[in-house]
Computed example of a mutant assay.
Amino acid sequence: MKTLAMWTQVQMSHTTVMRCVRAVGEAQEKQDQELVIQAENGELDGKRQPNFLFAEADGTFVRGLKKRQHIEIKHFILYEGWVKNGKRRLLKEPYAVMTSKGLDTFWEQVGAAVEQRYRLWQTQVVANSDGGVGYDEAHFKDAFCGSHKRIWVQLDAFHVAQSLIRSLHGDKAWITRIQQAIQRKDRTEVILLLDTYESNLDEDERIKQVEKVKQYLIGHWDRLFDWREIMAKETLPENAGRLGAMESNQRHLTFRMKKRGMHWGESEEGMVKVIQGIRNGTLKAAYLSSFIPTKRDERIIKKMIRIASLLKEPTVPSIGAHRGRIGTNASSSSAVGKLNKVLTFA
């Protein structure tokens, strides 16, 4: 608003800006939901057929207006690999899905986005998540059910390291030994190290934390390892790297929606969809298309016109105005006589 006032003649209040954000975000949301409907009707037919497709999903929390209220923003990124940019690697053909709505809506939009862009018959899908509620292996397999190859879902290395740091209270020596055992794929040694560490604890709370991380690691053992170690080296894409792009891509949300005393109410979904549209380069087209009926709406309108044309009654030709008068053969005290008297005086 300060920029507008300084460099242009336009002045806008905070409320007007919020309404604009909500209006533009709703246009992007409408487009996403239209894709979901088309996917349910089998109307989407993606064309891209990459050898590898990578996906990551996670959530981040922003503050709500109510006391101690936290709103989860679900975030999904899809990309086809990496390209070199000097010493850095950038994601190839990235595409994001973001929403503050429920997990069912989130994964419906993810599935629709995948169907719109890709034909996955012979594509190897590799996914990455922390394995938390709503971001587990089953959801990824449902979203990429079009692939006839095994969908490999690994645990995010960052979240594995964080779980060890929290449970072992930052004990670097023990954390390093456990991580080295994981790298050697020595499951027995990992269990032995955690049991040994647990046996030296006295506090029940810390013992529960160690048991929890042990269940987490052993329960997801096959998903702890880098995907490049599983695939044949000759099939790996060019510039293949470790998964974990989600943590850096979360900044698109966190830089705009967290810290600086920010609290979000009804406008949070609009802002999320605006960020998604800018990230994907679809925001302008989505907003402009909101003024044009969708193909589905056009079909409904045409159907209504056809029905109306069938039910329309034929026009009766006009035979001109009729002239007449009320007969005077009735007594003036009768109803007809009184009516005639009124009309005559008028």
Rank of each mutant, 00 (worst) to 15 (best):
D130S: 07
T294V: 08
K312Q: 11
G281S: 08
F255M: 07
I278L: 11
K141L: 11
K208I: 01
I73G: 01
Y216M: 12
F158I: 12
S248K: 15
K284E: 08
T294A: 08
K141Y: 09
N329C: 04
A285C: 03
N280Y: 14
K338L: 12
F52K: 03
E229H: 08
K302I: 06
A23S: 02
G320A: 00
E205V: 10
W174S: 11
F158V: 08
V133G: 04
S318V: 03
L90Q: 04
V133E: 06
K273P: 04
K87N: 13
I275H: 04
S199A: 10
Q11W: 14
W221T: 13
E34M: 11
L224R: 04
Q69L: 03
V24Y: 01
Y197E: 05
A181L: 12
N340W: 14
S289D: 13
K208C: 05
H139R: 15
L168P: 01
M257C: 05
V83R: 11
R296V: 15
V342F: 08
L339N: 01
A245E: 15
R256K: 15
F255P: 00
N200E: 14
Q116T: 13
E268N: 07
E43D: 13
G219M: 15
Q9P: 02
G59V: 05
R48V: 03
L253A: 06
Q209R: 15
R223E: 04
H220A: 07
A55Q: 00
Q69T: 14
E203A: 09
N329A: 02
G86M: 06
A127P: 05
R184N: 03
A113G: 01
Q162D: 05
A308S: 11
I37F: 06
A27C: 11
H159S: 05
Y287D: 00
L339S: 00
V114P: 05
V190D: 02
G134D: 04
T344P: 00
A113V: 08
Q179A: 13
H70R: 14
A173H: 11
